[in-house]
Design a protein around this nucleic acid. Sequence first.
DNA 1: TCTTGACCCCGGAGTGGCTACAGGGTTTTT
DNA 2: AAAAACCCTGTAGCCACTCCGGGGTCAAGA
Lengths: 167, 167
Amino acid sequence: MRIGALGQATGVDPETIRYYERIGLLPAPVRRANGYRAYGPAHLERLAFIRHCRALDMPLADVQRLLRLLDHPLDDCQDVDRLIDTHLAHVQGKLQSLQTLARQLEQLRGRCHGQHATAECGILHELVAAAQGESCVCHVDGRASDWAMPTAPHPRIHKIKRVLSPE
Amino acid sequence: MRIGALGQATGVDPETIRYYERIGLLPAPVRRANGYRAYGPAHLERLAFIRHCRALDMPLADVQRLLRLLDHPLDDCQDVDRLIDTHLAHVQGKLQSLQTLARQLEQLRGRCHGQHATAECGILHELVAAAQGESCVCHVDGRASDWAMPTAPHPRIHKIKRVLSPE
DNA sequence: TCTTGACCCCGGAGTGGCTACAGGGTTTTT
DNA sequence: AAAAACCCTGTAGCCACTCCGGGGTCAAGA
Ligand SMILES: [Zn+2]
Ligand SMILES: [Zn+2]
Ligand SMILES: [Zn+2]
Ligand SMILES: [Zn+2]
């Protein structure tokens, strides 16, 4: 099985497959004489697993941990449960804030119907007013609230070339 | 007003403020004799606007477009409306897929209670089975469906150094 | 006066999870 | 035989920041 066929079978772009190999998520397959990668059924299964986890929006580091746990069948599964719990909590948190967001945007959208000049547009007016007012969550000063900006940054880890450790 | 005070007033990190200036989102302020940036109330207002838009999860390119529209008060506001519509649709789409996701994860979580070896863990079993089966959305072949991976990539635009154009 | 600390400057590299491309080689189809 | 489709490596780009190194500036305290 060459990389294109594996990609077809799993719905994963070949470039992405090579990327997974580069970061150590998918084991490097044997090569044919011409240098082409040759995959077997084990790779297919593993890649399908990865894709399914990604479809559940798990970060690749979590997927890596699950794969490792799969490879050690005698370990306790507590780590699996915790990982899923954490991820689920994360998803639910995002869901909450997205719901708030959608409500705010719908309300904002209602501020303008039809055509005016931008100087009279209710949407722009509301945006400017809200940005100035105190009522908006984005203005509570300090870190006391549990509200976070939708696009939260990632904590930084340093000097990793191979993104995921090899074993 | 120096950069630190502006950051305090708006809740934006000074590094982020410099970043906004670098990409042309916030106009460069005058400098004092020592090279420090000196901001006025106009900057404060603009930055608060930016932050409020970001709190609504708008991409910076959209914020830039809104700022431009604010600066041209005689233009028609149709662009504003379309921009908000598009963004709202985007948010609602993400909300939908997150809801599906949360349901799937909750169901998955229910597969394991208490401790077993990973070889017997219902969660891992389900993940492997789902990845192999045909029932899962992540396996529909081709692009015919309206389902998309949660972390969808952005289309690519080329050779932009200054991320947002200057005017 | 000296030192400590809080600010400020700049440029460059790193984050995740890919995607795109350049510039070559190989295989398959027409 | 030529064209199309596939494969290889390596690098750079996307977003919206964040962090760091290596320096400069300016106040208050010992
Ligand atoms: Zn699946
Ligand atoms: Zn309007
Ligand atoms: Zn706000
Ligand atoms: Zn379990």
